[in-house]
């Protein structure tokens, strides 16, 4: 884990100069993490004729941002917050028995993988469509692979081990954002932005739309993107590091005093947004049945 991640928190994470530039890198469609092959339902909507031009696309993007975009933004913000809060936990104890002789798989409070699995399960519960869960996990796995080389950190190592089949994409994005030096708001912004740029680019390719027109649509969404990122962060209860949380040292030393912290860590996660888009579910599942598809999702 980079040194500045844990330390930055007390001083206010937005003060860290690295965040903004890192956000640009994370949100850039050129980030080599496999995102270019996902249309977020746009390919199927084009095939079915529910996206035929810029007007349909604008409505598609606005609806996607208000639902899946907001949910992924909130999950990314929560993951970023968790990553920052647990940056002090060394990755090494993972896989070893802890002080009480329990294995991490037993799910002790000291197990750094446990909150990641819980947060990942919150993403599962918000993704009813198995096709969307699969697409999200594939993208999460590829992002973690890429991020671990760009921004190596104990948090990313922990997450990769905690969810070996691939964490959900917003969870991976939040952890990567923290490792890159972003704060939860920036993580949320990257997630919200990704939720519309992928489908927009796909529509340009599939329908031959004027790329400037489509970028204008994205620019029109800028206020909504800000709102989504704000709403995502407002939905977080800042309970991840209550007073008395361990500052350093082996996790098991803090296990007892950490009891309250462990109880409250992520206590706000159940209430995170769960906005669902029934049409996106249908599109994602229909996409898998299309033998001539160009995009993964």
């Amino acid at each position: 884990m980079r040194q500045d991640i844990g330390e930055g928190r007390g001083a206010g994470m937005r003060d860290r100069p690295s965040g903004d530039a890192a956000l640009l890198l994370l949100a850039d469609s050129r980030l080599p993490a496999g995102g270019h092959a996902h249309s977020g339902g746009a390919e199927e909507a084009v095939r079915l004729g529910t996206i035929t031009g810029p007007e349909d696309l604008a409505r598609f993007l606005r609806g996607r941002l208000a639902t899946a975009g907001l949910v992924t933004a909130a999950l990314a913000a929560a993951a970023c917050e968790l990553a920052a809060a647990t940056a002090d936990h060394p990755a090494e104890p993972y896989g070893q028995a802890d002080g009480d002789g329990n294995t991490p798989d037993a799910g002790t409070d000291a197990d750094p993988a446990r909150p990641w699995r819980r947060l990942d399960a919150e993403a599962d519960a918000r993704t009813a469509s198995p096709a969307q869960r699969e697409a999200s996990r594939v993208q999460g796995r590829l992002l973690i692979r890429t991020a671990r080389r760009i921004w190596p950190s104990a948090v990313l190592d922990t997450l990769a081990k905690a969810v070996p089949e691939g964490a959900h994409h917003p969870i991976a994005l939040g952890a990567a954002a923290a490792s890159a030096g972003c704060d939860p708001y920036q993580a949320a912004m990257a997630a919200a932005y990704n939720s519309v740029t992928g489908p927009a680019t796909a529509a340009v390719r599939l329908l031959g739309l004027d790329p400037v027109t489509v970028h204008r649509l994205l620019a029109d969404l800028a206020p909504a993107l800000n709102d989504a990122a704000h709403a995502a962060c407002a939905s977080l209860i800042d309970d991840v590091v209550p007073d008395g949380a361990p500052q350093n040292g082996p996790a098991h030393n803090a296990a007892t005093q950490n009891g309250a912290a462990a109880k409250t860590r992520g206590s706000g996660w159940p209430a995170l947004p769960g906005h669902t888009a029934p049409a996106l579910d249908l599109l994602a599942e229909g996409h898998l049945n299309n033998p001539m598809k160009l995009f993964v999702s």
């Binding site: 339902g41 529910t50 159940p270």
Partner: peptide, 29 residues
């Protein structure tokens, strides 16, 4: 919000009545 033995099973919210979202081909079409 549905949970099984405390674990989340399904969490869903629906928003209805925002014309910009209701008619979205991504949401209700």
């Amino acid at each position: 919000d549905a949970t099984v033995a405390g674990r989340p099973l399904l969490r869903q919210e629906l928003l209805i009545g925002d014309p910009a979202v209701d008619a979205s081909p991504a949401v209700y079409g």
